[in-house]
Design a protein around this nucleic acid. Structure first.
Length: 419
DNA sequence: TCTGGGGTCCTAGGACCC
DNA sequence: TCTGGGGTCCTAGGACCC
């Protein structure tokens, strides 16, 4: 069996920990740059506020209903997420942290008599220890656990825990669910399925897999197997290293000069390098892109892939190549909105093929990079950084309504009033 | 006054080479 | 005179996830 623990409206729930007065009230959290709404509390959803809509379009509606709005505070959410995972580990030895608000577990059989009680205990513990509400889904496969989790949140009588053990329970839920509710089936595929007469998850589970395979791909075939209780996706405690690593951001304000864009791209390259070193890998190719807003007129978007001089994770090399590339992509007379750096063709550091005739990354580079990472992990990100990233950062993102970093920064520690 | 997220993986199609 | 295969690299864009 697999369990999936998923935090309810995670970013909103994080904000509510420190603002208990906002519990039961409509709350939304915005994406980077205060661009879109990316999290809505139950009450905000009930007001009909859509997901991933631009904030400025919905501002009047939000004001009208007195919705509380927060900019995203990823440092805080990351810390709360780690606390939730710590609690989950008290209930399972095998945990896959799937995203910041979701973890798969292999439930320990008979720990609380039955799975229903097991789920309830986890839910209670996370609320008690972290003050985050969660839903729990337990079933034979990950895909079914995902679906059960959705049901746990939607159907009140389930009390936030949904267990699919018996055949009739599985059929009941699959008949209720649409194909687009199934993990791995997006809007595009669900539309094509509908044209084939496949509407519910139950229809999908009973479809001809061979036919689906020719029309779609292996992934969908696996999904069908999983819906039928045949486990194809294992619990991945150590997710495999990324094959591509990206860092892309919209600028706080549109940029028309090269210099600030170069600084931003230097920062993105450096962030991508941090991620690369974390998974002990080197990159041989880099992708850099620059674009104006796709919504405006006269849209300009260009990317370039560059071969690095040798497989590397050295921030200085990454920055040098990324800033060179961005200078080539840059054109005068445009209002640029976004840029990004991607590291592609990633190989494990331990099995790099060395070339007799070209230089490889030096030991000195390795030492310097690990020193920088250590310092930044002890004293805070950006304690040491490359000057190319700039110090003024006029292009950095807009966050008008960010809450304090309560549990992450000493100076933001909440105060308890004594009366 | 203006405003529209970020990350990963995959594939189609064009250009070029032998 | 006309026609032809196969591989690699690059770019753009689709699809899905949170």
């Amino acid at each position: 069996m697999f369990g999936l623990i998923d935090c309810n409206s995670f970013y909103c729930s994080c904000e509510q920990i420190f603002r208990p007065d906002l519990r039961g009230k409509p709350v939304v959290v915005l994406s980077n740059n205060d661009g879109c709404i990316v999290a809505r509390s139950k009450e905000a959803k009930a007001l009909g506020i859509p997901d991933l809509e631009p904030y400025f379009k919905l501002e009047p509606l939000l004001k009208k209903h007195g919705v509380h709005v927060f900019s995203s505070n990823y440092a805080l959410y990351g810390d709360i997420s780690a606390r939730v995972v710590d609690t989950i580990r008290q209930f399972a030895s095998d945990v896959e942290v799937y995203s910041c608000d979701e973890s798969f577990v292999r439930p320990i059989d008979g720990l609380f008599g039955n799975y229903q009680e097991y789920g309830q205990q986890i839910k209670k513990a996370i609320w008690k220890q972290v003050r985050i509400p969660v839903g729990v889904g337990i079933a034979q496969t990950k895909t079914l656990a995902k679906l059960a989790n959705k049901a746990a949140k939607k159907i009140p009588k389930l009390n936030h825990v949904c267990v699919l053990e018996r055949e009739d329970q599985r059929e009941w839920l699959l008949r209720k669910a649409a194909t687009k509710d199934v993990w791995g089936v997006g809007s595009r595929v669900s539309k094509r399925l509908a044209d084939m007469g496949i509407h519910s998850a139950w229809d999908l589970a009973n479809a001809n897999t061979k036919h689906l395979r020719t029309q779609f791909n292996v992934t969908l075939e696996r999904t069908v197997e999983e819906l039928n209780g045949v486990s194809c996706l294992e619990l991945d405690e150590q997710p495999s290293p990324k094959k591509q690593i990206y860092c892309t951001r919209s600028f706080g304000e549109k940029q028309s000069e090269l210099e600030p864009i170069k600084q931003a791209v230097a920062l993105y390259a450096s962030r991508a390098g941090e991620k690369l070193r974390k998974q002990n890998c080197l990159a041989t190719n880099m992708l850099v892109f620059l674009q104006t807003s796709p919504f405006g007129e006269n849209h300009y978007s260009k990317s370039a892939t560059i071969k690095l001089p040798y497989p590397t994770d050295d921030t200085r090399v990454l920055i040098a190549y990324a800033t060179f590339a961005i200078s080539q992509l840059f054109r005068k007379g445009y209002q640029f909105q976004k840029a990004g750096v991607g590291l592609i063709d990633i190989t494990d550091k331990s099995n790099i093929q060395v070339d007799l005739f070209t230089p490889a990354q030096s030991l000195r580079s390795d030492k310097l990079m690990s020193l920088i990472d250590q310092v930044n992990s002890s004293f805070g990100r950006d304690t040491l950084f490359c000057a190319a990233e700039g110090t003024k950062k006029k292009w950095s993102m807009k966050q008008m309504k960010r809450s304090p970093m309560f549990t992450v920064d000493w100076s933001d520690l909440p105060l308890a009033a004594c009366t």
